[in-house]
Amino acid sequence: MEEKRYNEFGDFLKSRFPFKVQKISVNAGFTCPNRNGEKGWGGCTYCNNQTFSPQYCHTDKSIDRQLSEGISFFRRKYPEMRYLAYFQAYTNTYGDVADVIEKYEQALRYPEVVGLIIGTRPDCMPDELLGYLRELSRKVFVLVEYGVESTFDETLMRINRGHRYSDSVKAICRTAEAGIFTGAHMIMGLPGESRNMILQHAVKLSELPLTTLKLHQLQLIRNTRMAAEYKKDPEGFHLYQLDEYIDLVVDFIEMLRPNIILERFVSQSPDELLIAPRWGIKNHEFTARLLRKMRERNASQGRLFK
């Protein structure tokens, strides 16, 4: 059997469950503090939530119905499969704590759901909710994913994140100290960030008690402020070519702490929303090319970790 080049998320799930598990996205009707005026208006400059919400995820449908429609796709082929409710759209810890908890509990009452994955911002984890998740994680699988996006405050300001990198550090440390699986999400190639700056993300993230990490390339999406910025000043952006991005990701992985679990390297936005880059490649095809490049270079996760 070929030596593993990096820690795969699928292997992590296999180590936690005696059966196959699959994420099912849920849109529970949350918003964000930089959309409603608490931190800012308009949201992050790159964000259009249509790019990652499946067809069945609509807030006019109950959480039960979204789960049922999502699960029905897999149930026929994998009747023994169980599911993780993935609270994905917007900030899924933001709101009245009792209301937030009730949404989680609705998902957990669904018979085949065995855990939660919660996507959120690092400035939206109140102590009361973290305490609930700490207790919950002792009974079911819980992974909290923080949208870090960049480790440079000037970038975070430019993309209207409404928080600093220090907020990410604090949230990740608090969550991990509570015994909860803790993840981070990063966008590779944000405007103003050089290749060396992106590789510094790997160094900084490796210092944090992260369980998992998601990466994906910067994508310019229609009907976003970033798309308007690009149209006005395309020279202010570096959109990576596919092979160039693969080389960047290999370098990133080699600098990363060896035991961080890597869940994803690219994202696929709907064709009708995507402006650029247009690589025309599926996630599994990208992973195959990445592994081929890692074999060619004899690269492995953490080889250059200090």
Rank of each mutant, 00 (worst) to 15 (best):
Y6L: 06
F9R: 05
F9N: 03
G10K: 12
L13W: 02
L13D: 01
K14E: 10
K14M: 07
F17M: 09
V21L: 05
S25R: 06
N27I: 15
N27R: 13
A28R: 04
F30C: 01
T31L: 11
C32K: 03
C32W: 02
N34L: 03
N36Y: 07
G37V: 12
E38Q: 14
K39G: 14
W41Q: 13
G43W: 00
T45R: 04
Y46W: 12
C47L: 08
N48Q: 07
N49T: 15
S53V: 14
R65G: 03
L67K: 03
S68T: 15
S68Q: 13
I71E: 01
R75I: 14
K77H: 11
K77I: 15
Y78G: 13
R82V: 12
Y83Q: 06
A85H: 01
Y86I: 06
F87V: 04
T91S: 10
T93C: 01
T93Y: 01
G95R: 04
K103V: 01
Y104L: 03
L108Y: 04
E112Y: 09
E112M: 08
I117H: 00
I117G: 02
T120K: 00
P122D: 06
P122L: 06
D123W: 00
D123P: 02
P126H: 05
L130P: 00
G131M: 09
R138I: 14
K139A: 09
K139I: 05
V140Q: 06
V142F: 04
L143S: 04
E145V: 03
G147R: 02
V148W: 00
F152C: 06
M157R: 09
N160K: 09
N160S: 13
R164A: 11
S166F: 08
I172F: 03
C173M: 10
C173H: 05
R174F: 07
A178R: 00
G179W: 05
T182N: 00
L190C: 06
P191R: 04
R195A: 13
Q200F: 10
Q200S: 11
S206W: 05
P209A: 10
T212Y: 01
L213K: 02
L215I: 09
H216G: 11
L218T: 03
L220P: 02
I221L: 08
R222M: 12
R225M: 09
A228N: 10
A228H: 12
F237P: 08
F237Q: 07
L239G: 06
Y240T: 14
Q241G: 13
Q241R: 09
L242M: 10
D243S: 11
Y245L: 05
Y245W: 07
I246K: 03
D247Y: 10
L248Y: 04
V250D: 00
I253W: 02
E254T: 14
E254R: 12
M255D: 11
R257K: 12
L262V: 15
F265P: 00
Q268D: 11
Q268C: 12
S269N: 13
S269R: 04
P270H: 07
E272R: 08
L274G: 05
P277E: 05
K282E: 10
N283D: 15
E285W: 11
L291P: 01
R292D: 09
R292C: 11
K293G: 12
M294Q: 03
M294R: 03
R297M: 12
S300P: 13
Q301D: 07
Q301Y: 08
R303V: 11
